[in-house]
Write a protein that binds this DNA or RNA. Structure first.
Length: 499
RNA sequence: UCCUCGGUAGCUCAAUGGUAGAGCAUGCGGCUGUUAACCGCAGGGUUGUAGGUUCGAGUCCUACCCGGGGAGCCA
């Protein structure tokens, strides 16, 4: 008998194995129980037959509650109908510990409830799939850079100054002096690139802005490569290769996870080189175009047409309800909830879309794109796009100017498709010390704290570039989720510090 | 900070201003191939808080508290 994990069951067909895990779900009848076992690597249905196990094992099967810990021995059978494709015919069962009444039942729950039980919610199947994909992406990130001659070099988390002077940071007391939790490893990354050539940082990042949206966390993980002797074009080539590489790995290794999440694989398969490269001015024109206006009008019309259809179904269901059998009533009730939720979604979209439409049309050259603008831009394409050369005044002080148009900075953002928006921000850095000194003054930043940074331009200044990838936003997009909060084990959000 | 939507049983949700309900979960009973199993029975409520309007408030009004979504800002 061999102890193994659910993930490895395909190597033990028709053999007897031992599994250790938790009861994910249980159903059964007088002499037969179906226990869905969860061990962290997957799920498997264990069949306990009264006639085939001893009394002690049968007692464990009858008394085990949801999330009770058990050790199961049994024969592995291939069964295509089951989750994971295998089933265990149980020969013996041992109870490790009985679980109290479990809060998260197999039915649906609201966001607040689940967030309050995040420590338990992580055991659920969707969360399992998301965390495994997160893990796969992290591994691929390291592989990509390590294979390409980068070394990982970490930037400090505690800093004495705000990097860009724009964001609101978390302030702490550092032995009597004010200090901040880092909002970016950027400047340190540049120093390390001058030391090692090509580096990447991978660590937590903190933003104290009071953003309450599906794209924001107050604590998130960022990957920031920085490369000496790279210009903007090379930087864009790198980010393109990088993202294609990550998506390919997830598609190759996480088909089960993507399936659990019901992710549209085709959308991910379209993530191929080359990504459209859209000049800021071009993006502004597209945003203000009739094409964008009409696209939204069509969407509004489609949503408006959906309302009477839903209402008709609701009325029809109500009519049938009186005479419906019990199981039909349950179906009607469930459908009613679905319809109500859909109606709320439509209402919200109908509130938002006209505003988006107006704001896109009235967009002024020189402003930064808002969340809705990014969504609208990406809807014109089937894969990520790279928007480059933004107005300098909306970008950080260290951005190099476009030699062909001084109003522009050599920055670039990658916008993910399907409405996911900005996942990468980066660009080519300024090399001229006088320019940087002027910029620091123009941004009202204290020159003293940038003394060390300016040294980088004093001793062998070279063209260099880099970017930052928001891990959680990447995972949200790859998994096709509606909110970043599910992409990190214990999300920190505005108003959320526990558990 | 501002805009917007919401708060009813442990959970998810119903309830033209007129007797607060259902499903799940829990307990008991039935069923040897179930797939969020099913069937029967039972327990379970100060409708977020405080006021107000009314013969009568879950429903209308005011204030506050908590949560969702969005703006600003950003990965």
């Amino acid at each position: 008998m061999e102890y193994t994990t659910i993930e490895q069951l395909n190597k033990f067909e028709s053999k007897t194995v031992e599994l250790k895990g938790w009861v994910y779900n249980k159903r059964g009848s007088k002499g037969l129980f179906f226990i869905v076992l969860r061990d962290g690597t997957g799920l498997v249905q264990c069949v306990v037959n009264n006639g085939e196990v001893n009394e002690a094992s049968w007692e464990v099967a009858s008394s085990a509650t949801q999330e009770s810990a058990i050790i199961v021995q049994g024969v592995v059978n291939k069964d295509e109908r089951q989750v994971g494709g295998y089933e265990l015919q149980v020969t013996s069962l041992e109870l490790v510990s009985i679980a109290e009444e479990y809060a998260i039942s197999p039915k649906s729950h609201g966001v607040e409830f689940l967030m309050n039980h995040r420590h338990l919610w992580l055991r659920s199947r969707r969360q399992w799939a998301i965390m495994r994909i997160r893990n796969r992406i992290i591994m691929s990130i390291h592989n990509f850079f390590q294979e390409s001659g980068f070394i990982q070099a970490d930037a400090p988390i505690l800093t004495g100054n705000a990097v860009e002077g724009t964001s609101t940071l978390f302030e702490i007391d550092y032995f009597g002096d004010p200090a901040y939790l880092t909002q970016s490893g950027q400047l340190y990354g540049e120093a390390m690139a001058m030391a090692f050539g090509k580096i990447y940082t991978f660590g937590p990042t903190f933003r104290a802005e009071k953003s309450k949206t599906r794209r924001h966390l107050t604590e998130f993980w960022m990957i920031e490569p920085e490369m000496a002797f790279y210009d903007l074009a090379m930087n864009m080539d790198l980010v393109e290769d990088f993202l294609v590489y990550l998506v390919k790995d997830v598609l190759a290794d996480c088909s089960v996870e993507l399936d659990v999440l019901e992710r549209d694989i085709e959308a991910l398969k379209r993530v191929e080189k080359p990504f459209p490269r859209v000049h800021y001015s071009e993006a502004v024109d597209l945003l203000k175009s009739d094409k964008t206006w009409d696209m939204i009008s069509e969407e509004i019309a489609a949503l408006k047409a959906e309302v009477p259809v839903l209402e008709a179904e609701l009325a029809d269901n109500k009519k049938r309800y009186g005479q419906a059998k019990k199981w039909e009533k349950k179906k009607i009730d469930a459908r009613e909830i679905e319809i109500n939720q859909r109606q709320e979604e439509i209402k919200e979209s109908l509130r938002n879309l006209p505003e988006w439409q107006e704001s896109a049309r009235n967009f002024e050259w020189g402003s930064d794109f808002g969340g809705s603008d990014e969504t609208l831009l990406t809807r014109h394409y089937d894969r990520p796009i790279i928007v480059h050369r933004y107005p300098a005044k909306i970008k950080a002080f260290y951005m190099k100017r476009d030699p062909e148009d001084d109003r522009l900075a050599l920055g670039m953002d990658v916008l993910a498709p399907e409405g996911y928006g900005e996942i990468v921000g980066g660009g080519e850095r300024a090399t001229d010390i006088t320019f940087l000194e002027d910029q620091i003054a123009a941004h009202n930043l204290p020159i003293e704290v940038f003394k060390w940074y300016l040294d980088l331009r004093r001793f062998g200044s070279v063209p260099h570039s880099g970017f930052g990838l928001g891990l959680e936003r990447m995972v949200t997009w790859i998994c096709g989720l509606s909110h970043v909060r599910e992409t990190i084990p214990f999300p920190r959000l505005l108003g959320r510090l526990h558990p």
